[in-house]
Computed example of a mutant assay.
Amino acid sequence: TKKVKMRKIHLLLATATIYLCLPAAECVFEKTIESFLKELSVRMCHPIPNLGLPALDPLTVNHAETAMDNKYLIDFTGSIDNFKVHGLSDFVINKLSINIVPGVTRSTINVTFPYTYLKSIYTAKGSLAYILNLAGDGNAETTITDFNFEISWRIKASIGPLAITALKIDMLLGDLKINFDNLLEEERINNFVHALVNEMGVELLGDIWNYEQPTAIDKVETIINSKLPDLLKLITGGNGGEGPPVFDGVEPDCKSE
């Protein structure tokens, strides 16, 4: 009938209008997120109370302890003191693509950390399979070059709260070097383990990530969806004018000119 045809035409026009507006809306989101990340990078040497974040560059842990006792495999106790990670604010945004159509195209954020440096005082006591005795006590240093991190997702097609789905995380390391004082009792084995990790550490970590990836991604996706509405409000400033801006009171003085 004529009314049905007119409804179809109106629906097509409405759909076309929405899709014509999408690129502009997505561009606004991309610029907003890029601006947020840049503003964050020049403040990461300070705590950011409105995000609930401590200072992130350097990221500092004053003291922590851990222990593991898997029979016949690992018997281990360890601690770190004055643990610091440098370089987290030096990230480079390689790709930022936001797609807001549910269930269609993936959104992607790809960043590289050119040089990250970890240093701590540590202890590591115990054994590996009752064969290699750990005697770690001293300085621990790790350098990571060209750490590339990519996260992508789709917007979940749902009438409920905004959520993401099909989360994917890819990580690549350009290079990895470690130096742990007195890690193993036997000096020759200690030197061999360091040489092995420094030669094959990138591949070993890649294998570990591939093994743990499904479980880790499920947990990360759940956390993101639980925080997504509040996170978007903070990033976009969409708090209805209530409360202070996200970086209120935090000076952008962490980068030298």
Rank of each mutant, 00 (worst) to 15 (best):
D81R: 14
V42C: 15
K119Y: 06
D57H: 03
L132S: 03
D137N: 14
T77N: 13
R106Q: 14
K95D: 13
G136Y: 07
I93D: 05
K125Y: 10
R43L: 15
H86T: 10
N94H: 04
T108M: 04
N50C: 03
H63K: 14
N70M: 10
T105D: 13
I80Y: 11
I100C: 07
N70E: 04
Y122Q: 05
V101A: 14
T145V: 06
G126Y: 06
I48P: 13
T142A: 12
I144G: 02
A124V: 02
G52Y: 00
T105R: 15
I93F: 00
L51H: 01
N82M: 01
H63E: 15
D75W: 03
H86E: 12
T108N: 10
C45M: 14
Y115N: 13
P102R: 15
S127G: 08
I121D: 07
H46S: 14
F113Y: 10
I93T: 04
V42S: 15
Y122N: 05
A135P: 04
H86N: 13
S107F: 00
L134Q: 08
D69Q: 08
T60C: 09
L128C: 05
R43C: 15
S97I: 09
Y117I: 01
T145C: 03
A64V: 10
D57A: 10
A64Q: 15
N70F: 13
A124M: 07
T108V: 12
D137H: 10
T123K: 11
T60W: 00
N82C: 00
G138Q: 08
I131F: 09
M44K: 06
M68N: 05
V42Y: 04
K84N: 09
Y117C: 09
V92P: 03
Y122C: 05
N94E: 11
K125L: 02
P49C: 14
P47I: 07
G87M: 01
D57M: 01
T60M: 02
L118T: 10
G87T: 10
K71A: 13
M44T: 00
V42L: 06
V104W: 11
N82P: 00
D137C: 07
R106P: 08
G87L: 01
N110K: 13
K84I: 02
I121H: 10
N94Y: 02
G136P: 03
R43D: 15
N99I: 04
T77F: 10
N70D: 09
H63I: 06
D69H: 15
N133C: 07
D137A: 08
S107Q: 03
V85T: 05
C45T: 14
I144W: 00
L134F: 15
S89H: 12
K71S: 10
V85Y: 00
K125S: 02
L128P: 00
I131H: 02
L96I: 03
N110T: 11
H86S: 09
F91M: 04
N82T: 02
F113S: 11
A140F: 08
I100V: 14
T60K: 12
I121G: 01
L73D: 03
I98T: 04
T77L: 08
D75K: 15
T123E: 08
Y117V: 05
I144L: 12
F91C: 08
F113V: 04
Y130L: 09
L59P: 04
S89N: 13
L96V: 04
I109V: 14
I74S: 06
S79K: 11
K119R: 06
P54R: 15
R43A: 06
F91V: 02
T145W: 00
S120R: 07
G78Q: 05
